[in-house]
Write a protein that binds this DNA or RNA. Structure first.
Lengths: 140, 140
DNA sequence: CTAACTGCAAAATGTTTGCTCAATA
DNA sequence: TATTGAGCAAACATTTTGCAGTTAG
């Protein structure tokens, strides 16, 4: 788990400000157990009694992504989602019935596959994304 | 590569018709080397001199997906793409500079990872998606 | 003939932009 | 008080829907 005050210090040292919106959104991601979309962030804020315009939410996730605080990912629906950018390499499993998402820590994965792909495609591979789809215990 | 006349026979036997739009779209996918979005299908049709409304394109990919002819996938941008559903399990590599996509045949992949995920999450795993991101030879 | 299909316009999502006003440091 | 950030409305892009008219078989 990333340290909020460390993040705030980094943002401040970049000459940026800590506003109510920014702090609330960082806090939400610090507590989040799964990636969140802009819409989900907006709804969570509303649930917290904080009213923040959706434009601000979009701009804020862009900002936090540029600052390296958040990482953008796609779960296969066409909605952009975000999560804290952590050092531990992990992947996701999505329930095809209730859309629940869980993160799976898995360092050193798909090494064998990456070698094969690298050799066959002649691409310089920089990153990969692995998602599993299935039925969660609650939906079985 | 799937056989077009076999697909057409299957659609006919389901009580559905083979229209100009349907046939043109199936033909496009038979020739496609990478997954296509609705917009790309529309553009390709236009380039072939076939004028088909975008609503029809959207309905057609839905239909072909329901018929098991196409498979929907996401490349990480938030655009739905489609490709022929083939039996050989394959994945994709995407160039982060020019967005070129290549398919990589890779049967029996991520087996080790699937076992780990299955055990930890208690999900019943049905499918997975693996994408590599990198720089293609032409962009290096 | 008739159910499957098409096109058009309009709506529904998700996201971005321009502009002006507000608030942090 | 200077510059970053917020809010609003409107534009945008992709996808969906309702409905009236068309066509394959």
């Amino acid at each position: 788990m990333l340290n909020i005050s460390e993040i705030i210090r980094r943002i401040r040292s970049g000459g940026y400000r800590i506003t109510k919106a920014r702090e609330a959104i960082i806090t939400i991601f610090a507590k989040a157990k799964a990636p969140l979309s802009a819409g989900e962030i907006e709804k969570t804020l509303k649930g917290m009694g904080v009213h923040i315009n959706k434009t601000t939410v979009y701009r804020e996730v862009d900002f936090l992504k540029a600052e390296g605080v958040l990482k953008e990912l796609s779960l296969g629906d066409n909605i952009r989602r975000y999560e804290f950018r952590t050092d531990n390499h992990h992947h996701h499993i999505i329930c095809i019935k209730c859309n629940k998402v869980e993160c799976i820590d898995m360092p050193e994965c798909v090494e064998k596959e990456e070698k094969i792909v690298s050799k066959r495609s002649r691409f310089k591979i920089i990153d990969h994304s692995l998602k599993f789809y299935g039925v969660c215990p609650g939906c079985m």
